[in-house]
Simulated scan of single mutants.
Amino acid sequence: MKITDPDNIESSIKSTTKTIINEIDYVLDGIKEDEFKKFIAAIDSSKNIFVTGQGRSGLVARTFAMRLTHIEFSCHVVGETTTPNIDEGDMLIACSSSGTTSITCHIAGLAKRLNALVVVITAHPDSELSKYADLTIEIPASDSDQVIQSQLTAQFRSTLFEQACLVYLDAVILSLVRLLNREEVEMMKRHANLE
C-alpha cells in the first residue's frame, strides 16, 4: 500500500512528535527516585562498567557506554573483541524491556557468579532477568501496564521503553557530569576522532 495523496496526511510532524514526547514524559513520571540515586552511586563506586542488551535495547546500552567513556569511566560493551574480564568490584548493566531475552539473562547470570554488581533496566521488574539483579530499575512502559491499557501509546511494541530508557540514561549522564564537575573540553578529548 502506498500513500496516494501526500497533501492529505492527517498528522503533522509537530503533533506526531508531541505524541511521542508526551508518552515518554508519562513513563518517566513513574520512575522511582531512589533507584536513580542508587544507580548513580553504584556507577561512581564501580571499577569497570560493562553493558549488555540485545536488539534495540542493546543499541541504547551501547549509547550509554559511549557517554560513560566520555565522562571518564572505564566502560565496555559485552561481546566486543576488546572487552576485558569482569570481576568483583565491577558492574554489569543489562537492558531488556521484556526481561526474558535469553542471552541477556545468561550474561547477567555469569556476571552474578563472578561477583560483579548487576543492574537490570527493564519494563518488567518481576522478570527472569531481575532475579540476577542487585538493583532493578523499572522503566514502566510494559505492554501490560496502564500505558497500553489507557491507549496512551501509539508506537510499535517496546519502542516506548527504548525511548524512555535512552532519556533516563542521558539523565544519569547529565547528573554525573554535574556531580563530578566534568568540563566540556575534557570530554571532547575522549570523543572518537577516527570518524
Rank of each mutant, 00 (worst) to 15 (best):
G58P: 09
T104K: 07
I13E: 12
I71A: 04
V27P: 00
M187N: 04
V77R: 03
E33Q: 12
F73W: 06
T17L: 15
H70Y: 08
N115Y: 10
I93Y: 10
I49F: 06
I103T: 15
D7F: 07
E80K: 02
R113A: 14
G109N: 13
V78H: 07
A42E: 13
N8V: 02
N181G: 00
D87R: 12
P125Q: 00
L176K: 09
L129Y: 00
F50I: 05
D7I: 05
N85I: 12
R157D: 11
D44Y: 00
S144W: 01
I40N: 10
T101G: 01
T19V: 05
K38Y: 04
S127F: 09
S97A: 15
K18G: 00
S97M: 00
R157M: 14
I43T: 10
E183L: 07
L152C: 00
V60T: 13
A94F: 13
S96N: 07
F36Y: 15
T52A: 14
K112Y: 07
S127W: 11
R56H: 10
C105T: 14
T100Y: 07
S45F: 03
I20Q: 05
K32H: 12
D145I: 14
I9T: 03
V51E: 04
K47Y: 06
Q163E: 14
T52W: 08
R62K: 15
D126I: 01
H70K: 06
R113E: 14
V167A: 11
K37H: 11
T83E: 08
R157H: 08
S97D: 02
H70P: 05
R182T: 05
H106T: 02
M188Y: 00
Q54V: 10
L59T: 01
Y132W: 05
T19Y: 04
L176V: 04
V78I: 14
A42S: 15
N193W: 08
K131E: 15
N85R: 06
Y26A: 09
I49R: 08
L117N: 10
S144R: 11
Y168P: 11
M187H: 03
T82K: 00
S74A: 13
Y26Q: 05
I21Y: 11
M66T: 13
T101N: 05
Q163S: 06
S144Q: 04
L166S: 11
R56K: 14
V119R: 08
L152V: 01
S144L: 06
N193R: 02
F64Q: 01
Q155V: 13
S57Q: 07
Y132C: 10
E184F: 05
E10S: 11
T122R: 10
I107W: 04
E183G: 00
G53N: 00
V172I: 15
T153S: 15
R67P: 01
R113F: 00
K131L: 14
Q54T: 11
R113L: 12
D90A: 03
E195F: 01
A111N: 07
F64K: 02
I49A: 02
T69C: 03
E35V: 01
T153F: 09
A111K: 04
